[in-house]
Amino acid sequence: MTIKSMRDALNEALHHEFERDPLVFLIGEDVGGFEKDGQPVEIGGVFGVSKGLYRKYGRKRVIDTPISEAAIIGAASGAALCGMRPIAEIMFADLTAVCFDQIVNQIAKFRYMFGGQCACPVVIRMTTGGGRNAGAQHSQTFYPIFTSFPGLKIAVPSNAYDAKGLLISAIRDEDPVLFFEPKVLYTEKCEVPDEAYAIPFGEAAMPREGEDVTLVAFGQSVNWAVQAADELRKTRGIRCDVIDPRTPSPLDEETILESVAATGRLVVIDESPPRCGLTADIAALVADKGFRDLKAPIKTVTAPHTPVPQARELERAYLPNPRRIIAAVEEVLA
């Protein structure tokens, strides 16, 4: 057990799975490297997540592509239909818009539309979310919209430990998985075992436990929720359950409903805009199946219904933060 960054934890997961299964391969822009004067020059991904793979496995299994997202995802899905275990990388979640058809009309539908004849075990890895002043076209989350598509599984890790275990599960899964890596968390560290381990999908984590209020958060919002919970406990003696579903699809409804049954109060947090998103989804779940347990109206903490602005002050104002979560908790306790 050592302290590792999310970047290194993901990298280890890729190495484990490349080693375990020769059918696993990686395809995407700048993921591998190239040969120069007969010598390998490694790129290893623009965020460094795939480092070492090209040196070890070469271009046969670490395929650098042209900037052609539709072709990358199409190729990954076709190979998966023929028995391969592709991991495709899209540099920013925003850019899945360029290959949306391949993901939502093709990959998501194959098993069902073809009557269960085939599997399409593709993993599509991508960076997600704000916090780096990357502007309107490179800061979106996109996991809510994909969560709405039956046939896709969605994972959004909030720490290095989960990132490794969830990616291993994703690669071993028989179904297509969209794997969202919050880009500001790549350098965040925690204890991560050296060996391979799989975290099952559909099982929430609970980084904090308490009986007063339930906080449900996704991706980097989990860290804000934990900070808020710690602050509330220290200064006010308020105890929160913090639930990180880890996989918005399949969703661990049980853990959320059980927690709300105990606390009677719910705050849902995500950095995506409020409409048709995960906060609305969880609020609807609890309103539908846990209404009688509620002692106060549900509150959500989200980004506003605007694109992501670029300037530092504006992005800071856009994203949720512990202060806003604390204010929401105070409201549900009032």
């Binding site: 002043n133 990357a134 502007g135 309107a136 076209q137 490179h138 694109p307 602005p309 670029q310 300037a311 002050e313 504006l314």
Partner: peptide
């Protein structure tokens, strides 16, 4: 107005 930044 600071909404776009370098890439926009």
């Amino acid at each position: 107005r600071g909404k776009g930044g370098t890439m926009h």
